[in-house]
Write a protein that binds this DNA or RNA. Structure first.
Length: 588
RNA sequence: GCCCUUGUAGCUCAGUGGAUAGAGCGACUGCCUCCUAAGCAGUAGGUCGCAGGUUCGAAUCCUGCCGAGGGCGCCA
């Protein structure tokens, strides 16, 4: 049980003894640290139902709880607040308990769910760019958090490999390389094993064709036909499609690996293509599937909606499947085959309406029973300093690799300027630069609430000072360095004794709040709470480190206690950084 | 037009219905003979977009207005 939960129990019982609901005993960190460590505001809420003044209730609660030896003081204040200060002895004992726990005091979920996290979202023919960064980083962190809580987690990038874009690419290829065997209708097999194009060539080709199709109805029609033929299994198209998917995936896997983002599956829209037919028949039994202007749609409107949802397209009038179709088939697959309890879609907030429709359709047609939780975890766009989507100076999209290179280069420069790592081998310097750059990039992104757009200012991101990823890494590196020195001097850790300095006590209090930071990020599907908390721990440690010179401390009991606190803080920081997906170099 | 998201310090952002709204950056002051200065200590900086409402209590919940971003059937 966490400290907050324990305090809630203690004060809940106190309210119960007064004949009131336990719920009033809820305790949270004090907003006025000079008055207490924690506060309980239940008396204010309970006053009316109890028929007595909040102040007198607060006095009664404080009197009863004040006898508990775990508290230094419990005092009523103002109109009905109760301020709680822990005894130093109890605080030290509590942290010692967390430090002795193999899980470091981190929470574990009582029920184990199968959580599918859908993030990353790369597409065929498109190199990963800044738009993929947030989905990848947020999704990766959420997956780590849920796994750490003990849930079963399946991470799936849901590759975009089946829609109309594929038909566009096929006709684009055909126009550019008409002689390729893929386009020979007489041939059924024996296509080349080598890819006919690189990803770079494909990524140039795609926008060209897309523009051409937008301008020319005939080519758009050709692309539609090619899409349908691909979906119906034309061998040459299938073979070409396979090659295009392969070259795209290879490059994207490399990008994800560099980011430190991993997946359990590498499924895409095409993975569920062969179950679409069956799924639509199943959906038809719900009576919600109708024809509209030649297309097959699901009626998802509900009279209670403020704005009725438009029908969801399952098949175009030519019979081809769409985005929503494969999304629904993917839900069916995740529920029926994978046994998902929760599916989180870490996808751009602009697709909110799409997911609302898809989720509604999945419910109405029985694809997703009520016990399955479908959630769109939307996020805002990453803008440049001008408030427009972040682009290169030339106005192009910034590739993910280029972005990483930019922050790594800044970190490299920083190493040189500070004359740090002069004696390091080039490979280690490079690894440090990469880790530091990525930390800056990831923390900068994760620290912002996911729903809002945020401004990416390259200059600010590469300064590496203040509230940044490198600051957090620095905390861990300092602790490691400190512990190594202590070991070299044969100093040993000792049991935690009551804190003797303000910074030491503050650090202990901050550490005690760790379980809530993790569970809150999970329940709100918002890693930024964890990022904020991790920063607070790092600040707490640096202040402690500054105020308490551990290696020079003459009292062995105090020195041993400080070493234990430093070691535990290092372990917690490492764990939290791992949950954020941030690697820590050995030194920096 | 309808719907969604959003508006907090000069800038970038946190903020769980509670008391005196917090960080970082930038500005200004100090601190490397001492465990890594990617650091620490401090100063200045706010009509929480505006107006109502609910509540013992509102940056937080509700309504309206204003500003910003986004979405609205055969793309994804």
């Amino acid at each position: 049980m966490s400290l907050i939960a324990l305090l809630g129990e203690v004060f809940g019982s106190t309210f119960e003894e007064l004949g009131l609901d336990r719920g009033y005993g809820k305790v949270f960190p004090s907003q006025r640290p000079e008055l207490g460590d924690f506060q309980c505001n239940g008396a204010l809420a309970a006053a009316r139902p109890a028929g007595r003044s909040a102040r007198s209730l607060a006095v009664a609660v404080a009197d009863r709880a004040g006898e508990d030896e775990r508290f230094g003081e419990v005092l009523p204040a103002g109109p009905g607040f109760v301020n709680i200060r822990l005894s130093d002895r109890f605080l030290a004992r509590w942290i010692a308990g967390m430090a002795a726990d193999p899980r470091l005091g981190a929470p574990r979920s009582e029920v184990v769910s199968h959580v599918v996290v859908d993030y990353g979202g790369p597409n065929v023919a498109k190199p990963m760019h800044v738009g993929h960064l947030r989905s990848s980083i947020i999704g990766d962190s959420l997956a780590r958090i849920f796994a750490h809580l003990g849930h079963r987690v399946t991470r799936d990038p849901h590759f975009g490999d089946w829609g109309t874009q594929m038909g566009m690419l096929i006709i684009g290829m055909q126009e550019r390389f008409p002689g390729l065997s893929y386009f020979d209708e007489a041939r059924r097999e024996g296509y080349p094993s080598e890819a006919p194009v690189s990803l770079d060539e494909l990524s140039e080709l795609y926008p060209e064709v897309a523009r051409a199709c937008a301008a020319d109805p005939e080519r758009a029609e050709a692309a539609r036909r090619a899409t349908l033929e691909l979906q119906e299994g034309r061998p040459g198209y299938r073979a070409l499609w396979k090659q295009m998917v392969r070259v795209s995936m290879e490059s994207q896997r490399a990008d994800f690996a560099r980011l430190g983002v991993e997946f359990d599956l590498w499924y895409g829209e095409s993975t569920v293509a062969d179950r679409v037919e069956r799924m639509i028949r199943r959906m038809e039994r719900s009576g919600r599937v109708t024809k509209s202007e030649g297309a097959t749609v699901v009626e998802v409107a509900d009279p209670d909606d403020e704005a009725p949802l438009p029908p969801l397209l399952l098949r175009k009038s030519d019979g081809a499947a769409l985005y929503a179709t494969t999304d629904l088939a993917t839900i069916e697959m995740r529920v029926d085959d994978l046994g998902a309890d929760v599916i989180l879609y870490v996808v751009d907030a602009r697709q909110a309406d799409h997911f609302r429709g898809v989720f509604r359709a999945a419910r109405l047609t029985g694809l997703a029973p009520g016990r399955v939780d479908l959630e769109h975890v939307g996020f805002g766009t990453m803008n440049g300093p001008d408030g427009r989507p972040f682009r290169t100076r030339e106005g192009g999209v910034v590739k993910l690799g280029e972005l990483i290179e930019m922050v790594a280069a800044a970190a490299r420069l920083r190493l040189e300027e500070n004359d740090l790592g002069g004696d390091y081998l080039p490979a280690e310097r490079e690894a440090i630069a990469e880790a530091v750059g990525l930390a800056a990039l990831k923390f900068g992104d994760l620290a912002t609430h996911r729903a809002s757009n945020y401004v990416f200012d390259p200059e600010r991101f590469v300064s590496f000072s203040g509230k940044t990823g490198p600051y957090l890494q620095y905390g861990v590196v300092r602790i490691r360095s400190l512990l190594a020195r202590a070991e070299a001097e044969s100093l040993t850790e000792g049991g935690l004794i009551p804190p003797s300095r303000p910074a030491e006590r503050d650090l202990m209090l901050t550490l005690a709040l760790m379980p809530e930071a993790i569970s809150r990020s999970a329940s709100e599907r918002a890693p930024h709470h964890l990022a904020e908390y991790t920063y607070r721990v790092a600040v707490g440690f640096t202040r402690f480190y500054d105020q308490c010179h551990i290696l020079r401390e003459p009292d062995p009991a105090r020195q041993g206690s400080w070493l234990t606190l430093a070691r535990y803080t290092g372990e917690v920081l490492s764990m939290l950084l791992e949950l954020l997906g941030i690697d820590v170099p050995e030194r920096m």
